[in-house]
Amino acid sequence: MDGFTEFISELAGRLSQFTDIIAASALIIIDICALVIIAFCTKEKKTVQAQWSKAARHMILTDAAESFTFTLNSQEVLMGRHISADLRFPDMSVSRYHALLTLDNGIWTIKDLDSTSGTYVNGVKITEKKLRNNDEITIGKKKIYIRRVKPQNV
C-alpha cells in the first residue's frame, strides 16, 4: 500500500513537468488511435460479409424439413462424420470426410471425396458437379438442399 501511494506521488511528480505531459498525451492519443481503428475494423466486417454473400450468391444448405440452415460462409465447406468437418452428420452412412463444397467465381461446386456410399445430386451419382439453386444433395442416407435466400437488406 505504501509502495502504491509512493508510486502515485512519483507519477504526479513527473506529470507536473511540461515535457512529460506532452509525452503522456502522445501515449494516450496513440492508444485512442489504435482502439478506434480496431473498433472500426468490426464495422468493416459487415461490408466484408455483404460482399461475400453477394459473391457466394446468398446460398445456404438446409434439409427437406428446413430443420437447420447452414450458411455457406467460407470458400470450402467440408461435409462428413468427422468432428473436424464444417458440416457434420453423425450418421454411420456418411464417410468421415464425405464431400467438399467449393466456391469459384460465384459458382458452388460439390466434389465427392472417395466416400464409401457416394454422393448424389438430384439422384445422379457424381464425382464433381456444379450446383444450381434447389439442387438435392444426397450423402449417405442424408438428403440436403442448396437454396438461395433473399438478401435481408434488399
Partner: peptide, 8 residues
C-alpha cells in the same frame, strides 16, 4: 466455420 475457427 470449424476449420477457420481452428486457425483463429
Amino acid at each position: 466455420m470449424k476449420s477457420l475457427k481452428r486457425g483463429r
